[in-house]
């Protein structure tokens, strides 16, 4: 039983990486901007966060540095696609490629560095509850922060006025513009906040999840996060569940292998992607499912004058 509790714990941890990045991308996309640069932003944030912890010894400064790096790259991306009207797909891919290369370059000096010792994050008292303790109460604080973030985001998007404005900018920028909202500035803000969350995810990888720096260490998590927003049909709660599901499938296949269960590990590795395709096929069959949630102007540039 203990090993199932540990499986749950590992799943929450793995899901948090994906959830943070996917929530950031969700905010972007709700405002109508598609940022394919997640992988690059996460890598730059990973090295920024790692370097910051090396120099200050404080994880939270590392997270802040990661968020800053993500936000900065996202701001550049936002400036390009929102004001200069460059193609969002191409610019996002360029950002991704740039991030991969730049992080490798910036990280040269940190390749064999080691982070300082950290205290355990167990919550006193709760951690001793059998099964529940190891499963839920020995996580890094960011795991709980992520859950809170989802609740906050649900409230923001669906219950608050600024959230309504954000969604209107993604659904019908023309209408929002006609009502007097600064569409481009709102989009930029959403892109920057989204970049900061991707950055937080990147820093979480290099500071907590795999606490070291090696080139290309995000290894595709940014792309999975992108798939996840679609998989979750742009609903925050589903993003979180999807993240745990994707994380869980990965962890489960390793656990089963470790337990000596005979099954093709390659197939399980592909499962998250297969699941995304299945969901896409399903929601495409019933257009109302996807249309309700998919921002209508996703990926389309907006020119106030036109």
């Amino acid at each position: 039983m203990e090993s199932y509790a540990l499986l749950v714990a590992a799943t929450l941890n793995a899901g948090t990486v994906l959830a943070l990045a996917a929530l950031g991308l969700l905010i972007n996309e709700k405002a109508g901007v598609l940022n394919l640069g997640a992988e690059g932003m996460m890598l730059c944030a990973a090295i920024a966060g790692f370097a910051a912890v090396i120099h200050t010894g404080n994880d939270w400064i590392g997270f802040a540095a990661g968020m800053g790096a993500g936000a900065l790259l996202a701001a550049i991306f936002g400036g390009l696609v929102i004001w200069l009207g460059t193609n969002q797909y191409a610019t996002g891919l360029a950002l991704s490629l740039f991030g991969v290369g730049f992080s490798a370059f910036a990280g040269i000096g940190y390749v064999q560095e080691k982070l300082p010792e950290r205290a355990s994050h167990a919550i006193p008292w709760l951690t001793d509850i059998p099964l529940l303790g190891p499963a839920f109460f020995r996580q890094h604080p960011l795991v709980y922060v992520t859950i809170a973030l989802v609740l906050g985001l649900i409230w923001f998007l669906y219950k608050s006025r600024p959230g309504l404005v954000l969604r209107s900018v993604g659904e019908s920028p023309e209408s929002a513009h006609a009502l007097g909202y600064p569409v481009r500035r709102i989009r930029l803000l959403a892109v920057v906040v989204g970049g900061a969350l991707c950055g937080l995810s990147g820093a979480y990888i290099s500071v907590v999840y795999t606490p070291l720096w090696v080139e290309g260490m995000v290894a595709g998590k940014g792309w999975i996060a992108l798939a996840l927003t679609t998989f979750a049909t742009w609903r925050p709660a589903r993003v979180l569940l999807g993240a745990y599901l994707f994380g869980g499938v990965t962890m489960l296949q390793f656990h089963l292998q470790g337990a000596g269960v005979d099954m093709p590990s390659q197939l399980l590795t592909a499962l998250p992607y297969v699941a995304t395709i299945v969901v896409l096929a399903l929601i495409s069959r019933n257009p109302t499912w996807i249309r309700i949630n998919m921002p209508a102007s996703l990926g389309k540039p907006f020119h106030p004058g036109s």
Binding site: S3, L6, L7, A10, A14, V17, I205, Y209, T210, L212, V214, G216, M217, V218, A219, G220, K221, T250, M251, F254, H255, Q257, G258, A259, S265, Q266, T269
Partner: peptide, 19 residues
């Protein structure tokens, strides 16, 4: 199923230790 994938290697190592 990879030569170089630090997050996956971490996950696999965690699974082994949990086992």
């Amino acid at each position: 199923n990879d030569w170089f994938n630090p997050p996956k290697e971490t996950e696999a190592a965690t699974a082994l230790i949990n086992g």
